[in-house]
Write a protein that binds this DNA or RNA. Structure first.
Lengths: 108, 108
DNA sequence: TCTAATTGCGCAATAT
DNA sequence: CATATTGCGCAATTAG
């Protein structure tokens, strides 16, 4: 029973003509907006993350600098006072020889 | 000398009809593509930057950890051997009293 | 004023 | 079957 001008459905494509089509389009447009907002937020958060990490990095670098200076000071102090006769074997992963070496970066 | 069928310009809107209009549209479409490619690249680079910074951060944290441990070791070593009679005033920005204090984070 | 770059928006194809 | 994502073109706006 072929009714109407258009035979059956005229095609399952997205271009119906109105009514249900329009409803679907509107909902998709909303989805598109949501998706794009989300995308922009993510991008923004990533940029913020870069700044956070750069700050943490700066703090850590200063920390390393300070610790290195203090370590150098203590080494010199230690060597100046007495350079041998130590028990050691009390701290893990530390090589006394290396640590007391005169290079400014023992642990690398 | 008004030529052509349309009187003058028919309106400065973007919808001329063809020819020059089409040319402008095509050029704009190209510009849009370039702009979007660039935008995506920038986003990608930002994400890469985050990873780089996280790695640097990890390295620095390990460095701080190691230096802190070594420093603790040397302090104990120093205190165990001799806890007084030092000249100091030889290194800038270092407070010997604080440094030799028993807290594990002297410089903060 | 013109051109290129950006940006918001809707459509449709496609991915989830 | 519905929503989410994505490429694409249009037009308005911005920047140069």
């Amino acid at each position: 029973m072929p009714r109407r001008g258009r035979v059956k459905k005229e095609g399952p494509e997205s271009g119906e003509d109105s009514d249900e089509y329009r409803k679907r389009r509107d909902r998709n447009n909303q989805a598109v907006k949501r998706s794009r907002v989300k995308s922009k937020q993510k991008t923004q958060e990533t940029m913020n993350r870069v700044n956070e990490l750069r700050n943490e990095n700066t703090v850590l670098e200063e920390k390393v600098k300070t610790l290195t200076k203090e370590l150098g000071f203590l080494k010199e102090l230690f060597l100046a006072h007495a350079s041998n006769s130590v028990d050691s074997s009390k701290f893990d992963g530390i090589d006394l020889q290396k640590m007391l070496a005169d290079d400014s970066n023992p642990s690398q």
